[in-house]
């Protein structure tokens, strides 16, 4: 996380350069100009394709409109959308569901990611092949993955029900998407499956950067395998864990296609997250203004959570 919270100090300006646009960019006086110049393409792209649409969306959220227009202040400004939002039980339900999903999916996928990373960090024959297999679901496009799961979970003809019945775990076929509990579990299962590989890759990267001597030293001090894990491994990969945690949280927050294809937010709102609610209001019920206000609230919650996590995790580093 250090990149995000700490700026580099004492940058030595590169010396002896030929000028660009007639300015000696290498001279300390102009060095920063080159810096800005290099940053410009990225900044322009992001301003045009991310910031501008975002501002438009924020603007729309202050209008009581059914359909979006592409100019600012097209009709009267109003807080009606936000008033309606905060007094709507659906919104508070969506907040609750999003919170639950966040907690459950993040915890389980971090655990699975950590477990698999530790497993393939061992020395054994065929290790790189195992590493590839473990992270394979990452390479499968989300829509493709979800469609596959819909088929596996099919209430009448899906293979999972058949397996569960054969093993004796359930007495009869489970209609995964017909009751709140099973629908939530199904969504959790698919999200974990799609989410853990990236976590695993990141943690594995962190694990490999830990010098072997640390473990040797801990062993000499008589630390057992769990002590080594908590006193060497965890602190060493804390920055990676922090970054991974934030990325995972943001992903769960924003992800739309997995839930939408699996349950559409149902049954009775059991899997209706803020992202699903935004989409439904915008594209099914044609209330752009209202939908944008949900989007804006989502954005603010995300910003607060990540600011909090950034602070927490950068704390862990020092």
């Amino acid at each position: 996380m250090s990149e995000l919270s700490q700026s580099r100090t004492a940058v030595a300006a590169p010396r002896r350069s030929s000028g660009l646009f007639g300015i000696d960019l290498a001279s300390p006086k102009h060095a920063n100009k080159l810096g800005y110049l290099l940053l410009a393409p990225a900044a322009l792209l992001i301003l045009a394709i991310l910031v501008y649409p975002m501002l438009l969306a924020i603007d729309i959220s202050f209008h009581d409109v059914k359909f979006a227009t592409l100019s600012f202040g097209a009709s009267e400004y109003t807080l009606a959308n936000y008033q309606k939002l905060f007094s709507s039980p659906d919104f508070w339900n969506a907040i609750r569901v999003t919170g639950q999903l966040l907690l459950v999916v993040t915890t389980i996928s971090m655990a699975v990611g950590m477990g698999t990373a530790l497993l393939v960090n061992q020395q054994f024959r065929g290790r790189s092949f195992a590493r590839m297999l473990i992270a394979l679901p990452w390479a499968i496009p989300e829509v493709v993955a979800v469609v596959t799961w819909v088929w596996i979970l099919d209430a009448s003809f899906g293979v999972l029900n058949w397996i569960l019945i054969k093993i004796g775990l359930v007495g009869g076929p489970v209609s995964w998407f017909s009751s709140p509990g099973t629908a939530f579990s199904a969504v959790t299962m698919v999200m974990v499956w799609k989410g853990y590989p990236f976590i695993s890759i990141m943690i594995l990267a962190g694990l490999q950067s830990i010098p072997e001597e640390y473990y040797q030293a801990a062993k000499v001090d008589g630390a057992n395998v769990f002590q080594r894990f908590f006193w060497v491994t965890i602190p060493c990969i804390a920055p990676v864990l922090g970054v991974t945690l934030i990325l995972t949280v943001l992903w769960v927050f924003r992800d739309f296609s997995i839930i939408y294809v699996l349950t559409g937010g149902g049954p009775v709102g059991a899997t209706e997250t803020l992202a699903i609610m935004t989409y439904e209001e915008a594209f099914n019920f044609f209330r752009m203004g209202y939908a944008s206000s949900i989007g804006v609230v989502t954005l603010i919650i995300c910003a607060v959570i990540s600011a909090f996590l950034v602070k927490k995790t950068s704390h862990a580093i020092y």
């Binding site: 990149e3 995000l4 919270s5 940053l39 992001i46 045009a48 394709i49 991310l50 501008y52 649409p53 975002m54 438009l56 969306a57 979006a68 592409l70 934030i246 990325l247 943001l250 927050f253 924003r254 739309f256 803020l274 992202a275 935004t278 989409y279 915008a282 594209f283 752009m288 939908a291 944008s292 989007g295 804006v296 989502t298 954005l299 995300c302 910003a303 990540s306 600011a307 950034v310």
Partner: peptide, 23 residues
């Protein structure tokens, strides 16, 4: 810039679709 980069990961894509379409 660092925080801003994170921000861009927070925008719900469904919210951007219609403005982007117009652009």
């Amino acid at each position: 810039v660092g925080l801003f980069i994170l921000m861009s990961k927070m925008l719900p894509a469904t919210m951007l679709i219609i403005p982007l379409f117009g652009i």
